[in-house]
Design a protein around this nucleic acid. Structure first.
Lengths: 233, 233
DNA sequence: ACCTGAACACCGTTCAAGT
DNA sequence: ACCTGAACACCGTTCAAGT
């Protein structure tokens, strides 16, 4: 008879626990704080024991990327509204960057095809094809949407990183903004460039800009659908 | 009298030379190959001498990001065609990713406001305002364009990284593509997901997708300009 | 058969010792 | 005043030695 696994004096390590701990460290202190030794310490385990469950540091980072894509909610295609589904998808991607400013960039940077990313993309593609798009158009639209959402999210968190712990956008008057931004620019930078930085990255309503760009992409998609329908009739 | 600087037995180190060497290493072997010691070796110099000209490794990476933004061609607004200028800007950003697949991601990831980025953005903003956009709209459009171009470029180079030295997209029949992609997915991944990967990242015409997305953004911008003009008259 | 931890070949950065 | 390179506190990973 095997030993009963009731006595879990110390929960056995597994890949999932390792990755969750890694994400925790990255969220709290940034990617550069993650090390295999630190990971072992965090898990209360010999640092080298981690290698039993994971293939090395790169594999840990790949795994964290996968974890993040898993966090994306599944499409709920019951209502059959492909546009609403795409919009939710795009917003969820952007939200992931906000929830994990340090970790989310990994989603784009690991040379892997995370299975959950493909799974979610599959759902969106199905919804688009069900709505009458052919597969090429569907893929093109989805690709545009993913690229934009990740690019936008990345740009936002890179701005947060400027002020790190501080609030973003820096609260207060436009004059405070000016001062805050000027600190990140070499002394002697012309004021006109500080203005550009503010106009581009701090002044506009980030949510509204994102939404209206998504609108643009979606209306482009809608147009293509009409044309396709017109041509096939 | 000072010593004439004619005898340049060994060209004196300076920030620009350090950064150029760093970019060279990253281009050739990837970011993870860059180390301060390696940098010193590449320059034929005591590794610690590099610290005289640069503030540390992070500053080197910041500097490389700056170098890349500098490579972007300036706007040539003589013809006054704001849309053409924006399109060239977007294409140039994407081209930078193709030219520096390993280094270009740094453009988005360093918590700095690279002055040349602001400079180039300034030129685009001016062109837009000259065409009748108000500053908020101009900033929003430019922000959307930059986010999309960088996101798209980043997605592309992450795909290249999958096959690294190999050609991209992998040449040959659709069947070869299937096999090539399947190798990067865990064994037992459903074929349907391999299909998704191919449809999303290998099948579509990358250039055409990019251009048509830019069209979308530009036509949205044009629409806003019309409205703005209509309202003010 | 499994795990540990010593050891190797690297890091970035500091700083005392030299000139 | 300047530069060197030893030294410190870390890395990721391997692997022999233990149990």
């Amino acid at each position: 008879m095997r030993e009963p696994d009731a006595t879990v004096a110390r929960e056995p390590l597994n890949r999932a626990r390792v990755l969750k701990a890694a994400l925790g460290i990255i969220d709290a202190e940034g990617v550069e704080a993650l090390s295999m030794r630190r990971l072992g310490a965090e898990l209360g385990v010999d640092p080298m024991a981690v290698y039993r469950h994971v293939d090395g540091k790169d594999a840990v980072l790949d795994g964290v990327a996968e974890l993040l894509w898993e966090e994306l909610p599944d499409a709920c295609p019951e209502d059959g509204d492909w546009a609403a589904s795409l919009r939710a998808f795009a917003s969820a991607i952007r939200s992931l960057f906000h929830a994990h400013p340090h970790a989310a960039p990994l989603m784009l940077q690991r040379p892997v095809l995370p299975v959950p990313q493909l799974e979610k993309s599959h759902q969106q593609l199905e919804a688009l094809q069900a709505a009458g798009f052919d597969r090429e158009d569907a893929a093109e639209i989805l690709r545009t949407l993913i690229s934009f959402s990740t690019g936008y999210g990345l740009a936002e968190v890179t701005c947060y990183a400027l002020v790190d712990g501080e609030a973003w956008p820096p609260p207060g008057s436009e004059r405070d903004l000016l001062i805050a931004f000027a600190q990140f620019l070499p002394p002697g930078t012309p004021a006109r460039l500080v203005d550009v930085a503010i106009a581009l990255w701090a002044m506009a309503d980030s949510d509204a800009t994102f939404e209206s760009s998504i609108d643009l992409i979606l209306s482009g998609a809608r147009l293509r659908l009409e044309r396709r329908r017109g041509a096939s009739e």
